[in-house]
Design a binder for these strands. Sequence first.
DNA 1: GATCCGTGGAC
DNA 2: TGTCCAAGGAT
Length: 398
Amino acid sequence: MKPLCQIDKAMTLAAPRVRKKARPAKVVQKTAARKKTVRKRAAAKPPAPREPAPRAATLLAWYARHRRHLPWRARPSEPADPYRVWLSEIMLQQTTVKAVGPYFERFLARWPRLQDLASAPLEDVLKLWAGLGYYARARNLHVCARAIVERHGGAFPDTEDTLRTLPGIGAYTAAAIAAIAFGRKATPVDGNIERVIARLHAIETPLPAAKPLIHAHAQALTPARHAGDFAQAMMDLGASLCSPKRPACALCPWNDACAAHRRGDAETFPRKTPKANGALRRGAAYVAVRADGAILARVRPPAGLLGGMMEVPTTDWTHDFDERDALAHAPFKAAWQRVPGVVRHVFTHFPLELTVYRARAAAGARPPKDARWLPQHKIANEAFPNVMRKVIAHGISD
DNA sequence: GATCCGTGGAC
DNA sequence: TGTCCAAGGAT
């Protein structure tokens, strides 16, 4: 493999630009026997050379110039803060950098140190997390903070294996923290890195089956030193030049090493097996408004969908919801009125359609069991997920 | 391995 | 408008 690299490099430099319509797939899979033939023909028509092996140093040099400046990122040559790295990594799971920014700042301002977060009530953590989605992350964040204080004396574990034992920290996050915060040689592989590697090697195996292969390639590329910078460089590359839809291969520091680029169809990688979308679920939600404007609200069950978050009373959300049964599930007897229109919301695995009913309650009305009257001005700072904010807005509209 | 978990933005 | 996607983890 290594010796070929020298040959290929030489060929790349010597050969004229390869035609786009070449058949690189077959070139890659040439047998030793066929190579002879090709070499003979090479005099007349140079074969498509294989890509030179990608070099970590090449990417690190690019990173030094083009790295993003992010709130949780230490400046070059400054030590990383494990607390910040951890907090950001949890928030960034399946979430865009742009969305995380303000949440990260608010969390850090409210709980500057791990110990502060660990001693905070879960309720407060969920309030600050509201709107960011995937609320199990917030619950695990809280449990994790307490575990580090109790099991590790408040100091973050500095090895991948030990980090992996903490709630909310999986293979990716453990490797990311080990590499970025502690300089360990670890290889986190996120969606960005999967894409970069899949293109680099033109991997035809679709995700998620290709994960082990992709991880092996990423691991082979990881340098012994600066593994944290290397991981972040891979992610920055994937977030900027090596983007999902229209990769800017011309600007990529690794374009000479990229098999997919040579094929000319980098944007088609990684291959993916399509996942089925959930069927529509429907239900009714009840916005009860007391004379002083307070809204009837309750806390959802601690686990599962929107676990531990606030909601207004609703029916179950089912595929066969019957509108005619809606009033039978209202939280109390009243002159419920159906608010025209519906509230639509799309979760990861199913779309939801809620019809909203509204009723007024007397000033002294007692809340039903497990529910309470919430002053309207407090709604903004309570742990309502967005779907519930939509429902309330719809319910109190005219 | 397949499902369950939110949300907002880009195209 | 529909689809895809974003620094994944838990079960």
